[in-house]
Write a protein that binds this DNA or RNA. Structure first.
Length: 417
RNA sequence: GCGGCUAUGGUGUAACGGCUAACACUGGAGCUUGUGGAGCUCUCAAUCCGAGUUCGAUUCUCGGUAGCCGCCCCA
């Protein structure tokens, strides 16, 4: 008994039964439709990557403690991808001479993080990554932030349901330089900014005063020319977004983001519902990442969002579509063990695009109807010797109970209409 | 990595330290061999693991494990 395998999935990962997967796949389908309407193409790669891909960038603690990393039988160090951006940068760099820039690429796939599961955080989750590669700051940033907004709106979200908080790494860097902070105090200051939303205003002000310099003050004063210039560019971005129909983007000095590779605009999208304070989307400009593989830098901007927080958001706001669906349109019942007639009908109907399910059990016809109802299949017809002879089907609409006799050639158009 | 809460059939719940661990739903079989979801009957199925206290532990204690919720971190 001790060796009986558990039916539980591995810690922090999920099983997707057909009803679960239908829901998730339905959301993905809608996301794909929106992205493709903007000319974005889906790419993909293996979840297995060389560990070195993550070691030259990002943050040491994340790589060492928060990834699935192991050594394969050939002594190669392998990591299950925790994010897609390095893979994208690697792929872009590898074919930099032949790809038609700018690239509009997206990927929907699983990511792995070795950390303790809690609300909205699992060890495997699905993430959508959207990137625009090969254009400098400016219109590309506007398109990317607009896309984030468009995805939410295509699910029916209103601008009052979410807010886009924007900051700029260049602005942070210029202000920090002007404030004369050394690297260590800079790190502490950015951490403080990151925690601002979790602090009371008084606590934040007090912590801010205890720092050796105050970059935020320099931004607010606007007297330092280099800082004022970056702030002006950020304001221009927000104005351009508003002009393009994205009215809920705001400057937020508390947006910092954890990764070192961001070089320009950074942003996060939040639910305006205070019960759900987690970031829904996050991203920014990373102009230096592709150059890590050699060659000239290729500028890029993008963002990503995970399925767990996204679906939480949709549910919270009553925006999750039903995605009601059944495994088939028509259930062909078989009164006897001879199912050849039913199979013949099924083949003909499938060629006309009907999803047909043929009963293969020995259940009574009445149980077969119950089975069809339980499965949510909308139409039922029994096929036995009578039907084989006449070529007529008695098509029953299970939802209403109505039954009509149709020649088999008319069944497909009736069901699909 | 740190802390809090929880753990009983597949699911949701019940059981002053004391009888054969109860109920509902679900699953299976039947009433019903060419047409409905109901109803009725029967039936499968559980105290997370390991110590301890006790005459006796689902119940109390400790440890482990798992889940949830926070913290850290967050690509």
């Amino acid at each position: 008994m001790a060796d009986t395998p558990s039916t539980e999935p591995y810690k922090g990962v999920r099983d997707f039964y057909p009803a679960d997967w239908r829901r998730l796949a339905g959301v993905f389908k809608k996301v794909r439709g929106l992205l493709e309407s903007y000319g974005y193409e889906e790419y993909n790669a293996s979840p297995l990557e060389r560990s070195e891909l993550y070691e030259s960038k990002g943050n040491e603690e994340i790589i060492n403690e928060q990834t699935y990393t192991f050594t394969d039988r050939g002594d190669r160090r392998v990591t299950l991808r925790p994010e897609m951006t390095p893979t994208l940068a690697r792929m872009v760099s590898a074919k930099r001479r032949e790809l038609p820039f700018p690239l509009r690429w997206y990927n929907i796939g699983n990511r792995f993080r070795y950390e303790r599961p809690q609300r909205g955080r699992l060890r495997e989750f699905f993430q959508t990554d959207i990137d625009l590669v090969g254009l400098p700051e400016g219109d590309a940033d506007i398109e990317i932030v607009s896309l984030a907004s468009a995805i939410l709106k295509t699910f029916g979200a209103k601008e009052t349901d979410f807010i886009i908080r924007i900051n700029s790494r260049k602005l942070l860097a210029a202000a920090s330089k002007a404030a004369g902070l050394d690297d260590e105090s800079l790190r502490v200051y950015w951490q403080l900014l990151d925690k601002r939303s979790k602090m009371t205003p008084e606590a934040f002000e007090e912590a801010r005063r205890s720092m050796p310099g105050d970059p935020l003050k320099i931004v607010e004063d606007g007297t330092e020319p280099a800082v004022a210039e970056e702030k002006r560019k950020l304001d221009a971005l927000i104005d351009a977004l508003a002009a393009g129909g994205v009215g809920n983007a705001v400057y937020d000095p508390g947006i910092v983001r954890g990764f070192d590779y961001y070089t320009g605009v950074i942003f996060e999208v939040f639910d305006t519902d205070i019960k759900n304070p987690r970031a829904l989307f996050g991203g920014g400009r990373y102009d230096g990442l592709v150059a890590l593989f050699g060659g000239d830098p290729i500028p890029a901007v993008g963002f990503a969002f995970g399925d767990v927080t996204f679906i939480d958001f949709l549910e919270t706001h009553g925006l999750l579509p039903g995605f009601a669906g059944a495994q088939a349109d028509l259930y062909l019942g078989t009164p006897t063990a001879d199912r050849t007639a039913a199979q013949d009908f099924a083949r003909a109907l499938r060629e006309q695009g009907v999803r047909v399910f043929v009963n293969l059990t020995d259940k009574s016809l009445s149980d077969q109807i119950k089975d069809a109802v339980k499965r949510g299949i909308p139409y039922f017809a029994a096929v036995g010797s009578e039907e084989a002879k006449s070529g007529m089907l008695k098509l029953k609409t299970l939802f209403t109970g109505a039954e009509e006799s149709l020649p088999v050639d008319d069944v497909a158009s009736r069901i699909l209409s």
